[in-house]
Computed example of a mutant assay.
Amino acid sequence: MKRDIENTQDITLLVETFYRDLCKISEMDNLYNEVIKIDWETHIPIMVRFWGSLVLREGGYRGNILSHHHHVMEKYPLTQEMFHTWENCFLETLNRLFQGPNSDKTKKRVRAMSQSLIKKLDI
């Protein structure tokens, strides 16, 4: 039986596994590694703080995800399909690793975030 997301180590496992899985999809790998040229050593801890704030109420995340995505759109046209790919990959990773109330809360947040960004970015 899988356990629930309980601590920062669980969030770290989720985030690292998710991005590894996401970058197996060629379009997403291209976006992150060729277009954005993301610095993974910087990005992963930021995303751990972000998800830790949302799921475990740990705090520590300071940023504006909408402005970050606007910045990406200056370099590359994001599509609804890309957000759906991101959402589906995140949910698959989450379902493979965890189950429980925090996991369920995270699923709701992922779906809401994907839809919100699509709407706010007008794509």
Rank of each mutant, 00 (worst) to 15 (best):
T42P: 03
K37W: 07
R57S: 11
G52L: 02
G60I: 06
T42I: 14
L56Y: 08
P45T: 12
Y61C: 03
E34R: 09
R62Y: 08
W40V: 10
L31F: 06
F50V: 01
L56R: 14
V55L: 07
E34N: 13
I38M: 12
R49G: 00
N30F: 15
M47Q: 14
G63P: 07
W51K: 03
Y61F: 14
Y61W: 06
I46Q: 05
L56S: 12
L31S: 06
F50M: 02
W51Q: 02
H43G: 06
L54S: 01
G63N: 09
G60A: 08
G52R: 01
V35Q: 11
F50T: 00
I38Q: 12
L56A: 06
N30K: 15
H43T: 09
S53V: 05
H43I: 13
I44S: 02
T42D: 03
H43K: 11
E34V: 07
R49F: 00
E58W: 02
N30H: 14
L54F: 01
I46H: 09
R57E: 05
W51I: 01
G63H: 04
H43F: 15
P45M: 13
K37P: 03
L56N: 11
T42L: 13
R57N: 15
V48A: 02
Y61A: 03
V48D: 02
T42H: 09
E58V: 01
N33M: 12
E34T: 09
G52H: 00
I44C: 08
N33T: 12
D39T: 09
G63T: 10
I44H: 03
L31Y: 07
Y61D: 04
R57A: 03
E34M: 05
G59A: 05
F50P: 00
G52N: 01
R57I: 00
S53M: 08
I44E: 00
N30S: 12
I46V: 14
T42M: 12
E34K: 10
V48M: 02
F50I: 01
I38C: 13
R57K: 15
Y61I: 04
G52S: 11
I36Y: 11
K37L: 09
L31G: 04
P45L: 14
N33P: 06
S53L: 04
L54A: 04
I44D: 00
